[in-house]
Every structure is written in structure tokens, then in C-alpha cells.
Amino acid sequence: MKIEVKDIDFYYGSFHALKNISMGIEQNKVVAFIGPSGCGKSTFLRLFNRMNDLIPDTRLTGQILIDGKDVYAPKVEVDVLRKEIGMVFQRPNPFPMSIFENVAYGLRVNGVKDKVFIAQRVEETLRGAALWDEVKDKLKASAYALSGGQQQRLCIARAMAVSPSVLLMDEPASALDPISTAKVEELIRELRKELTIIIVTHNMQQAARVSDKTAFFYMGEMVEYDDTKVIFTHPRKTETQNYITGRFG
């Protein structure tokens, strides 16, 4: 198992946001988190790279192991962990820098100085994110000059540049048009050859298209977790059934 989650409970103040969640995720698989708004998908996702550490007055019990190592062990250095566990956010959030510097950022803040290596890496990851041909002539231009879809692919490239082994994606295509969405999905299918991906999505078809396994959450609980095919054809729980059919109409 690449990732093991054991008996997770998570609280915002006194609000019990995640209830007794356990799951395992295999290497090089894509896992989709689905469920109605407010059920805790983002909260859960942000536990893997300890993004919730930033929110005051929260409490966690249970364990998350990545490669057998406890993410929340006291000796873990959070910035080293976050280099290993990349994240792509719902809204594209490029930095106010050039396209090149955006992708190079993760390398620079982790101490890489070698200019030649950085330039190679930037090209490589931009190619990987299917963005190279569109930006190769304007690497020095501001990232804000790109379209929303291009910005999101830039953010994916930026996350990939530090070569994480897990990529967390929180509704990465929800702010994008259908063509950009298709490109991002294509990208996810490519990337899973290199790493393990967890993707939160509201779009059932998207979950069905890109993921190997799907977890359905409801009110802070993980109701069902199974192969994507099973979830979308023969879900065991009625809640899952209702949610999926409701969405499919």
C-alpha cells in the first residue's frame, strides 16, 4: 500500500468533520473522492499533506501512513513532506511571476541552484503538463497572461516539478471549460504512470473516466470505497446509489 489511513477522526473546534475513516490506496492508482458539498472531501484531502495544520483549533486522531511512515509523527518535517505530496487546488493559483519562475519555484525553495537542471526540468514538466507548445515562446511572460485552463495546467506542472510521489487534486477542473477539462483529465491518465493520485470531484462522469477506485463520502463518513466500476454500477449502499443516480438523472 502506498497510503494507509487508519481510524481518522478530525475536528474543527467541536465540529466533528471526519468520522472514523480508514482506507488503503495502492501505488500508481487514481482514487476519486465524491460526495455532496460539505461532506468533508477537501478536509480529508488536506490531511495528506498537512494543509490543515494551517487552520487553528483543529484536532486529529488516527494515523495516515505514506510509504509506511506516519505523516503526523513528531519528527516529520512538514516542508519535506509537502515536497513529496503535491497539491493542485480548485482555483488555479499561479504566483505573480513568469511562467518559467512558477514552475521553477518548488525547486528553488528546496535549494536547487543548478540553472541548467532547472531549465531542463521546467521544460520537461511543462511538456508533461501538455503546456509546452503553448508557452515555449513566452516563458518569461507573466503566468497571469494565460487562460484559466492553461493556468491550471501550469499549476499541475508546478506541482510535478518537485517530483512528488503523490498528487492531491481538489476539484482541479471545476473552474475550467470542457476542452480544458478534457486536457486535465488526459493529463491525469498520463500522470498516474508516475505517481499516485487522489482527486476530489463533483463530476460523476469525471470520476468514472479517470479513477480506478472511488470513495463516496456523506456527512463526514466514508460510506463506500470500491473499484470505480463497482461504485458506478453496483453500489452496495443505498446512499451511494441515491447520490449517483441523483446526479446522473
Binding site: 494551517l54 516542508d79 509537502r82 503535491g86 504566483f95 519555484y105 525553495v109 528546496n110 506541482a159
Partner: peptide, 27 residues
């Protein structure tokens, strides 16, 4: 400055100080 900028930087393994120096202060 929106928190998404801070989170984006921290998520790449930048420290808080690096985030402030390279992203937040320039903005």
C-alpha cells in the same frame, strides 16, 4: 493577499519565511 497564494507556496515545500519573502511581500 488571498490565502490560496500562501497555500500554493507551502504545498510546494516552501517554508513560511520563503513564502513571505518570495510571494507575499512582492505582492
Amino acid at each position: 493577499i488571498p490565502d490560496s497564494m500562501r497555500e500554493g507556496s507551502l504545498a510546494l515545500g516552501a517554508s513560511k519565511l520563503q513564502t513571505i519573502w518570495r510571494v507575499i511581500l512582492p505582492m
